[in-house]
């Protein structure tokens, strides 16, 4: 009886063609996969697959160019906004996005990120913040929470010696070059829908040439947090969200 439902006219959801069929290398339950998917869905829905150029970072998402079925460029560690600046200036009519993690964007690429946003380059920066260096084995990142254990802060992050976590998104929202700055998450269906809307908005603002759009996605890292994916999502809600509250930080003024 259920079989008769499976035909194309009843289809409500399938994987978008902007994602390739390659199996992602991310750990089970990692927020990167969902973040990739919603970005690809936005590109698909806007019909801009041929006009989009992505810049991949270094970190867990270094292989993002295998998964997005759009033109991609790999950048040196942290330099994705600088590379995207060049691409956007040569092809001002294209849609350019960078996809970066917290180690890439908030640590090694702080200068490039801040200056690209300060210049107001018309690019979309997707920032996936999981509070840890995932690919290299769970070292402490600038965004690691106070007291959070990582392989280089085994007794928890101590602000006396290691400093306080960096809220780079709030920092970037202060810059005059940014147009739309928001923080979202992708751990629950409602949050995924909101995050997708935010990315859609940011992509559409890119047509207006008003400035940098910055979308932070707070994500989990089950492997390095040493939890199951479902536990890590719960831990993220309880610990990450009080420090990194979800919502729009800078929205364009309505006319």
């Amino acid at each position: 009886m259920a079989e008769n439902l499976i035909n194309p006219e009843n289809l409500v959801y399938k994987k978008t063609d902007v994602l390739t069929d390659r199996i992602m290398h991310y750990c089970p339950g990692c927020g990167h996969g969902t973040a990739h998917r919603i970005l690809a869905e936005v590109i698909d829905e806007m019909g801009i697959q041929n006009e989009t150029i992505g810049v991949a970072p270094v970190g867990c998402s270094v292989l993002a160019y295998y998964y997005f079925n759009v033109d991609m460029q790999e950048a040196a560690h942290g330099r994705a906004p600088a590379v995207a600046t060049g691409i956007k200036r040569v092809f001002p009519e294209k849609f350019v996005f960078t996809y970066q993690g917290d180690g890439d964007l908030a640590a090694i690429g702080t200068a490039e990120t801040i200056h690209a946003c300060n210049r107001g380059e018309n690019i979309l920066v997707v920032f996936v913040n999981n509070g840890i260096y995932g690919m290299t084995g769970g070292q402490m990142a600038p965004t690691t929470l106070v007291g959070m254990k990582s392989s280089t802060s085994p007794f928890g992050r101590d602000t006396k010696t290691m400093g306080a976590p960096l809220k780079i998104t709030e920092l970037i929202a202060q810059l005059p070059g940014t147009y739309f700055v928001t923080r979202q998450s992708v751990h629950k269906p409602g949050n995924v829908r909101k995050a997708k809307k935010a990315i859609r908005k940011a992509m559409e603002y890119q047509k207006l040439n008003k400035g940098t759009c910055f979308v932070e996605i707070v994500a989990n890292c089950p492997s390095n947090w040493k939890m199951t994916p479902v536990q890590s999502n719960k831990w993220m809600e309880e610990n990450m969200f009080p420090f990194y509250p979800l919502g729009d930080i800078k929205v364009p003024e309505e006319k």
Binding site: V12, Y13, K14, T16, Y26, G29, G33, P189
Partner: peptide, 19 residues
């Protein structure tokens, strides 16, 4: 057929149908 499972799936493995 609410598609919540497919929307949260990090690996996009679920296809959803609804009458």
């Amino acid at each position: 057929g609410c598609a919540n499972c497919a929307i949260v799936c990090p690996d996009a493995v679920i296809t959803v149908y609804r009458e």
